[in-house]
């Protein structure tokens, strides 16, 4: 669980409203205008592969993809390393999970507000896929419990006063993964502000 390699995916409400191609100029624009607070490197087009990573924005610390895995379009944030000054002091798994969520939600918020996408992109707030992208962490029941323990404080902030369910969903590819569902379908902006309003403004920011 010490691994920095955490994946997080948020799904689109109406994937049929938008084409993968639409994200190519958006990501290029993000690089040009430095829309995210990290070192952004390049855009990669994988539209030709079936249920693949779609269109990717490669950053130094993470990959952002409009991902099509399992046929479901969503934003996959895949952390690779923590060199950004705001991240390299991350001390705990909980802090890391919060930071990953913050980065993913930030990207989602930006996409929702992206003028060229004309409001066609809306993310679901009630479902999140979380995965430890590191096979040194075996997907055992103990690891699952451990992850849940670290996740609990984050989810309490994210979804106050509502039913949250965390289910193990990895295994077939030997990675620890959980599906988080909540009875609250708040939009990503709200979720983001709840995370930020956590009062625990640690160095784990995006």
């Amino acid at each position: 669980m010490e691994s920095v390699k955490v994946d997080l995916k948020l799904f689109l409400q109406e994937p049929a409203e938008v084409e993968l191609e639409d994200f190519i100029p958006v990501f290029h624009d993000w690089i040009q205008h430095q829309r995210l607070d990290e070192l952004l490197i390049d855009v990669v087009d994988y539209r030709h592969v079936h249920d693949g990573p779609g269109v990717m924005l490669i950053a130094h610390d993470a990959h952002y993809a409009m991902d099509m895995a399992d046929g479901r379009m969503g934003l996959l944030y895949s952390r690779r390393r923590e060199t950004h000054p705001a991240r390299n002091a991350i001390q705990s798994v909980t802090e890391r999970l919060r930071s990953v969520l913050r980065c993913a939600l930030e990207a989602c918020r930006l996409l929702e507000a992206e003028p060229s996408l004309q409001g066609r992109v809306k993310f679901r707030g009630d479902e999140v896929l979380l995965r430890i992208n590191d096979r040194l962490v075996s997907p055992t029941p103990v690891a699952f419990d451990d992850l849940q323990t670290h996740l609990r404080p984050v989810l309490e902030r994210l979804y106050p006063d509502c039913q949250v369910d965390v289910q193990s969903c990895g295994g077939s590819d030997s990675r620890l993964a959980v599906k988080i569902t909540a009875s609250d379908d708040s939009n990503v902006g709200t979720l983001y502000s709840r995370l930020d309003g956590s009062g625990v403004r640690t160095a784990a920011g995006s």
Partner: peptide, 12 residues
């Protein structure tokens, strides 16, 4: 190869 592409590359 599939595992490595996911963990170290871009899942391709």
């Amino acid at each position: 190869l599939a595992d490595l592409a996911e963990e170290y590359s871009d899942a391709i």
